[in-house]
Simulated assay, not measured.
Amino acid sequence: MQVITDLLPVILFFIAYKKAGIFVATSVAILSTLALMLYSWFKHGKIEKMLMINGIVITVLGGITLLLHDKTYIMWKPTAIYWIAALGLLISRYGMQRNLIQNMLGKMMAPPAHLWDKLNLYWVAFLLALGVLNLYVAFHFEEADWVNFKLFGVTSLMFVFIIAQVFALKAYWIEQNSPPA
């Protein structure tokens, strides 16, 4: 369910883009993200950090896009999110001595401590590379190609990266005891 809500603004952006263009799609992305934030607030009493950051970035860069009628700013949005996430992983690990990847996955797997740091750095490198790739596609290909890449390309790359980690770390997965039937 979380994946669907995370992808919902991107999917709605894609649909709106196909029907009405980049500026309507930007408005839809802003409104759908803000709606998700409100839903999260009313349902859980809080807004997750990444959703909050995404909401701020989409509102600022999307707002500038609409105000100046310049698609450049919305095209920078994915890169900004990826680089903020990479920076967050680095600051958390080396500034606060907390490995966010370990916090998220620590109940599912138990690799040696040094592998948690490697995994964290792999995520940082992946997110930095994804940001660069977004900029390359945004400014070296047609707008429609970038929109398709944003939904299908990034989602596919993320899926492949996660699956590769699952296979690489399969020896460390913790067996989940299922309750008797």
Rank of each mutant, 00 (worst) to 15 (best):
F13W: 00
F13H: 00
F14P: 01
F14V: 07
I15P: 03
I15A: 12
A16M: 06
Y17A: 09
K18L: 13
K19T: 12
K19Q: 15
A20S: 14
G21E: 05
F23P: 02
V24I: 13
V24Y: 08
V24M: 09
V28M: 07
V28W: 00
A29F: 04
I30P: 02
I30C: 06
L31S: 09
L31K: 01
L31D: 03
L31V: 12
S32R: 01
S32Q: 06
T33V: 09
T33P: 02
T33D: 02
T33H: 02
A35H: 03
A35G: 10
L36Y: 04
L36R: 07
L36E: 00
M37K: 02
M37D: 11
L38V: 15
Y39C: 13
S40V: 00
S40W: 00
W41D: 09
F42P: 03
F42Y: 14
F42Q: 13
F42R: 15
K43Y: 02
K43S: 11
H44K: 13
H44Y: 14
K46D: 07
I47T: 04
I47G: 02
I47R: 08
I47K: 08
I47N: 03
E48Y: 06
E48A: 13
K49W: 14
K49H: 13
K49Q: 15
M50L: 15
M50C: 04
M50F: 14
M50T: 10
L51A: 11
M52S: 15
M52V: 09
M52Y: 15
M52R: 15
M52W: 13
I53F: 15
I53V: 15
I53H: 03
N54Y: 10
N54L: 10
N54V: 10
V57N: 04
I58T: 08
I58S: 01
I58Y: 01
T59F: 07
T59I: 05
